[in-house]
Simulated scan of single mutants.
Amino acid sequence: MTDRGESALRTSQNVFEVGPSKMTWMGDKLVIDINEMGAPPMVGPVRGKVTLTPKFVTNLEVPLTPSGTHVWRPFAPSADIDVQLEAEGWQWDGHGYFDANFGTAALEDDFSYWTWGRYPHSKGSVCFYDADRRDGSTLDVGLLFQNDGEVQLLNSPPKVAMKRSLWQVRRETRADAGYKPVQVKGMLDAPFYSRSAVKTQFAGEEVVGVHEALDLNRFRSKIVKPMLACRVPRRAKWRFDTPPAE
């Protein structure tokens, strides 16, 4: 992931380009062409193609704050995915999803902490979104995206604490009463953020899905924020007409 200036952005009805990478909607598929550089400790080119085929596309927008300054948009909560990157062992296919967050304010101004999880289920895909807002209120969203594309609002099962991440980020998710969720695969571990594959149980069914925990008190720290530049390089002067060497 690379931060780039406005000169590196182009959009059209079916294409979204940021620098040398782009996302293209082709019929019923989203094709993501990646041409980036990895961050330490995996420095080097990251190139290839990811093809995502949604089971369905929703029109749902979930406000995360009462004022609507932040919105979660689950475009395709259930999808087939095919990954073909130019590195040995980085080719696979399976179950995936596609979502996005939009906002008009800084996350750390409106939230102190949140967790999110999406779990494939026999009835579709289950998503849990929980957050602590700066104003003292909380967010508690549980949704079942059924296999036929219908969306059902859930009475979320209890929050259950999980083992902290390697950086000691607090983690929790939803699970049936008496069940203990566990991480089954680490994906990303940072001082303020954890992303992993987690096994939990919902409505009596064990599921494994993607889980994230975000500590925005840590993120807003004057010590932590500068560290992002080490992981996310900046190419403010990149241009489509004369792109400089990466």
Rank of each mutant, 00 (worst) to 15 (best):
64 L>M: 12
73 R>K: 10
89 G>K: 03
21 S>I: 12
47 R>Y: 07
70 H>C: 05
84 Q>P: 10
40 P>F: 10
92 W>E: 00
27 G>T: 00
14 N>Q: 15
19 G>W: 03
50 V>G: 05
84 Q>I: 06
23 M>R: 05
71 V>P: 06
28 D>T: 12
30 L>T: 06
52 L>M: 04
19 G>S: 00
51 T>H: 01
38 G>K: 00
20 P>H: 00
47 R>Q: 07
19 G>M: 02
67 S>W: 06
24 T>Y: 07
15 V>N: 00
35 N>Q: 02
49 K>N: 11
11 T>A: 12
72 W>C: 08
16 F>W: 04
36 E>Q: 12
68 G>I: 08
45 P>S: 11
66 P>Y: 01
11 T>P: 05
45 P>W: 08
31 V>Q: 02
38 G>V: 03
81 I>L: 06
46 V>Y: 01
39 A>S: 05
40 P>H: 03
55 K>T: 15
63 P>N: 00
80 D>Y: 12
58 T>K: 06
86 E>I: 13
78 S>G: 12
87 A>S: 13
9 L>T: 15
80 D>E: 02
68 G>M: 02
64 L>V: 11
50 V>Q: 08
32 I>V: 14
88 E>A: 01
39 A>K: 03
45 P>R: 14
41 P>Y: 05
59 N>P: 01
41 P>Q: 01
12 S>E: 03
10 R>S: 09
33 D>N: 09
78 S>I: 06
8 A>I: 04
23 M>A: 10
26 M>Q: 15
21 S>E: 13
62 V>L: 10
17 E>I: 02
91 Q>K: 07
60 L>D: 09
20 P>I: 09
11 T>D: 14
75 F>V: 12
88 E>P: 13
33 D>A: 11
77 P>A: 00
60 L>M: 06
40 P>A: 06
76 A>T: 13
23 M>S: 11
24 T>C: 02
81 I>K: 03
57 V>Y: 13
66 P>V: 04
47 R>L: 11
90 W>V: 14
23 M>V: 12
53 T>P: 07
23 M>N: 10
68 G>D: 01
31 V>D: 05
54 P>W: 10
20 P>N: 06
35 N>E: 00
53 T>W: 04
83 V>N: 05
69 T>E: 12
87 A>V: 12
40 P>G: 02
21 S>C: 07
69 T>W: 07
22 K>D: 14
60 L>C: 12
43 V>S: 14
